[in-house]
Design a protein around this nucleic acid. Structure first.
Lengths: 248, 248
DNA sequence: AAGTTCTCACCTAGGTGTAAAGTT
DNA sequence: AACTTTACACCTAGGTGAGAACTT
């Protein structure tokens, strides 16, 4: 009943797709923006020329190559690595709202095969969790503010509690997700409803995909988290695994 | 050259002026609102009926009766007690900005006479520090949000660094200050400039007055801070002073 | 057997007053 | 002599994965 998913090469390919220096944020607007016309099609000038660069990209790629896992708990758990970006090309005087969401990569449930150290498809996905969005707490703010420094979503938390009351992002454990960033220019004109689709743009970084888990499955992911996350310093040892993984 | 300031009774009087339960926030709008016409004179309906209640009022009064001191440092220091309020009477759908400022109580410089345990006037005040304001980080937000829970200005910091670059409130050490709260309804109409004075109201709680210091002068203030501020728990002892002051 | 929840020791990050040293 | 600055021990608050206990 389970199909082998060729995780290793797949993650490698995803990462290899990206350019080295400034990332090419993929415009995933779907119906609102066809893939071949760049990112300026019928967009308001305030969003048409926005560029977004993923911070800690090499770290994200290290995780991605192993198959990133993110812990979900009832109380809510932060992401590591943290989703952080540098933005350019904003209108300094215009007001923007920044928010994130998480879309299922597919309609599958996964399980980890320890003997082969790989993720297998374990069947159809569970019914989708409530689709929430996380507003960056600085929203709304002027373009001049956003571009001044790295924008960090470090306060965002992931939960598997379908009844969560704390505004955390609800995900199904053992499902794969793709984080997305949405940039919206605040439009206070009367026609704002009519032209809403022109006022935002979406950025997707394939190397930030992950599988939600309640406990780490891949031991190499655990070791890389311990090696790189300052809050996990207490678990660092002098042995091979840490030293081998540590390039943070 | 120094005049004795009858601190004890003065502070007691200030505190005694206040009613017991819901405080009567003093409307100190100055030119914009004459003292005798209540708080609704020519005010926009969104601010006319706003009521503000000081949280931890009894704690503030305990400090006030001793003569509150607040530490200022180069890096910035939080206030204790924290300025926190409960708000009612807002238009749930209207957007409001909340901000604080600190006005000099007088044009005097003070010094503490240890032998008499009292504050003395030490001369004319130094040139006023740059008059900054501190926006509550949740601003702007809807009335429904503000009234839902206690609004806390716990992230506000006081500094004596005239060249401060961190947005902290700049105060002169050894000078007396009165914190103020301003509530502004966001008005996006074309006439917003013309009617700006109708769109805000100011609340002043006399028991929150304090003298800025670089080191505590009154030993009883130090003991009350230690007894009540959780971050100073390390200095608590079992001796008389702590036990006597502790009603937090 | 597979996945989830809970408690815990061990961290990071930063808010306290103290006491000594520095400044004017 | 009066005031300010600095380094510090001691806290609060909360983010880690480990490992045991629990659930299905």
């Amino acid at each position: 009943m389970c199909f082998r998913l060729d995780t290793g090469p797949r993650f490698l390919t995803t990462a290899a797709m990206m350019t080295e220096s400034e990332s090419s944020p993929v415009c995933s607007l779907g119906l609102l923006c066809s893939p071949d016309d760049g990112r300026t099609c019928g967009k308001a000038p305030e969003v048409a020329s926005i560029r977004v660069q993923l911070e800690m990209q090499s770290l994200w790629r290290q995780f991605d190559q192993l198959g990133t896992e993110m812990i979900v708990t009832k109380a809510g758990r932060r992401m590591f690595p943290t989703f952080q970006v540098r933005i350019s090309g904003m209108d300094p005087a215009a007001e923007y709202v920044l928010l994130m969401d998480f879309i299922p990569v597919d309609d599958k449930r996964y399980r980890y095969a320890f003997h082969s150290s790989s993720w297998l498809v374990a069947g159809r996905g569970d019914i989708a969790a409530p689709g929430r969005v996380h507003f960056h707490p600085d929203s709304p703010a002027r373009g001049a503010q956003w571009v001044k420094q790295t924008v960090s979503f470090d306060r965002l938390k992931l939960t598997n509690n379908l009844l969560d009351d704390n505004g955390h992002m609800i995900l199904n454990s053992m499902h794969r997700y793709q984080p997305r960033l949405h940039v919206i220019v605040v439009d206070r004109s009367c026609d704002s409803q009519r032209y809403a689709h022109r006022n935002f743009c979406t950025f997707t970084f394939p190397e930030t995909r992950f599988i939600a888990v309640t406990a780490y499955q891949n031991h190499r992911i655990t070791q890389l988290k311990i090696a790189c996350n300052p809050f996990a310093k207490g678990f660092r040892t002098a042995d091979f695994e840490n030293r081998h993984s540590a390039q943070c």
